[in-house]
Nucleic acid binder design. Structure first.
Lengths: 340, 340
DNA sequence: TTGTACGCGTTATCAA
DNA sequence: TTGATAACGCGTACAA
């Protein structure tokens, strides 16, 4: 923060008070037109830039929101950020981007610093290692507007924007079932986080309603990353052949890709030996050698709605807390063996 | 910015002065141990969060840097942001992300607000519609540390982190030439922006050194996006058949993808009828139906080095201004017809 | 060890 | 229309 021209300096140059200069620059009505012109000219020639830090100190408003993202590498999130950015841009807010790398400690640190920076609100997608809800409760109770997106913690008094995870997961699973598969495994996220739990429940419900057995050994925690998917799939492949699943419902696309690697390394092919469906529909999904059947998640829309909800929570006198669900779409490609 | 607990309030509760509380919280040595404990406990129970806005006003330091990105949708940039974030995280800075959508006016607005927010420095990748260097000059002369990345404006007194664009482009072009192609077109970025100009020059030099003619009609401005590549390629395809190029060097991968669409729609195939090389090596490049030969640009590294350079510019007493070039790699796939 | 005074750049308020 | 004063929350410099 290099030393900058201040209102006072402009005032001295002009033989005015800082207050008048302030008024002129902020287009207040009660300034003589000539005075205003003199001030504006001088301000320009001196290279004046208003100091928002000082403004924020008195106004208690920073026009900045914090965004907490668990994994920048997951292609879903940059799209979300694009949606957020579009909204903040048009509403004159700015966005501080933080990244928890799926570590709750890092996430807590980020949130605390965002609070210290007095952002006007925070958009959070919680990390997969989240376990301490009381932290969120404190944050929310402190009065700072919070909106969760994608990975939500509900019933904490904060709004939430996500897709209809459970239904979507159920739909994907039903799709697999309807094509005759019976031995269906699930690579799941941590069940503490909304998307992990809901997608698991969708999978489970689909199986139960179809009268298929839900076997514990077919439900393996994979986390949300490729590596986790790879490892989890290896566990499934290590099962005796007759106990091995014939289809896999993955919690998201990266996990599905990891699983696909494991399946191939095992000498099996997709979808002939094992069918697989994902959840996200990221860039790679339609391009990989066996295009992935998956749930299309409108990332941009999630970001946009999340940002809109946060900003209305910030600005409205009596903000409504709500869970917003955004519709997904089942995209049928080849990996489920139901098509082409 | 909800109303928050202040040092003064804690002090009143405890019958101390705000100063003592401040010292206790900031771990200064000259505080009685018992007092410190009382303060810390009270601060915690009252939910105190330090106010960085007030701190920044005094210290003239925000521990925040601004990042200006031309196009979030281009997969290169989220990777860059990941690199930046890694550095800011480990150095205790934060990152305000702005997006110019390739519009210079929007970029100027973003930079001005970042200055008003008193960020400690700005990382800029300029938009393709940039035409007014005097704006950058003013910004840099105002004393705020600036580092350009990827799309650089040189000789303005700011450091720059980019890949060796000219050499890389030359290398890619030479590769095409070495496989017998002679009619080689270039889909170029705006020549005002460093990468546009340098990649063009690399292309041109390669042709000249090989004794091939550089024909104006084979050099078409495409911008940096898919759509631009599509349109530019259509112009080339509209040429009389014998004047039509047999190979295309695209300024980046998105443009190459756009061009590929145009070529296919024209009923031609790649690489048989027209060969093409890109520049970026983004996620999709190896996955598309005809994998793209391209220059691998280490995006994460660019972000990391850019952030490091910016932060050292901020913190060093006598910062060195330099152009940092990061090495690329030619990745040979199928689209150039030279392989597999 | 603790406290007081002052300033950071700005604006709200009241007075001239 | 303009100006003086105080306040926002904190830390430096000095005094007690």
């Amino acid at each position: 923060m290099s030393s900058q021209v201040t209102l006072k300096e402009i005032a001295e140059e002009l033989g005015l008070s800082a207050m008048t200069v302030s008024r002129a620059i902020n287009n207040k009505s009660n300034v003589d037109e000539k005075t205003r012109e003199r001030v504006l000219e001088k301000a320009k020639s001196m290279g004046y830039t208003p100091n928002h830090v000082a403004k924020s100190l008195v106004s208690k408003k920073t026009y900045t929101i914090g965004v907490v993202i668990p994994e920048i590498s997951h292609a879903f999130f940059p799209e979300v950020v694009r949606g957020i950015e579009e909204v903040t841009y048009s509403t004159n807010y700015h966005l501080i981007l933080t990244h928890s790398a799926e570590q709750f400690e890092r996430e807590k640190g980020a949130i605390n610093t965002l609070r210290a920076k007095r952002v006007d609100g925070i958009l959070i997608s919680s990390s997969q290692t989240t376990d301490d809800y009381s932290f969120y409760e404190e944050v929310i109770n402190s009065g700072i507007p919070v909106v969760f997106f994608d990975r939500c913690i509900e019933n904490l008094g904060a709004s939430c924007v996500s897709v209809n995870d459970k239904e979507s997961s159920k739909l994907a699973t039903e799709h697999v079932i309807s094509h005759g598969y019976e031995k269906i495994a699930h690579l799941s996220g941590p069940l503490e986080v909304s998307i992990g739990r809901e997608r698991y429940e969708g999978y489970r419900e689909a199986l139960e309603e179809a009268g298929l057995s839900v076997r514990d050994q077919w439900i393996v925690q994979s986390g949300y990353q490729e590596k986790g998917g790879y490892g989890a799939m290896q566990k499934l492949l290590a099962l005796p052949e007759q106990e091995r699943p014939r289809a896999v419902v993955a919690v998201n696309d990266p996990v599905a890709f990891g699983a696909i690697d494991a399946i191939r390394e095992h000498g099996l092919s997709i979808p002939e030996d094992i069918a697989i469906v994902g959840f996200t529909d990221e860039v790679r999904s339609e391009l990989v050698s066996c295009p992935l059947t998956t749930i299309h998640q409108p990332a941009y829309e999630v970001g946009k709605r999340g940002a809109q909800k946060l900003i209305s929570t910030i600005e409205d006198d009596e903000p409504v807390i709500e869970n917003i669900e955004i519709a997904t779409e089942l995209v049928i490609r080849k990996s489920c063996g139901c098509n082409g």
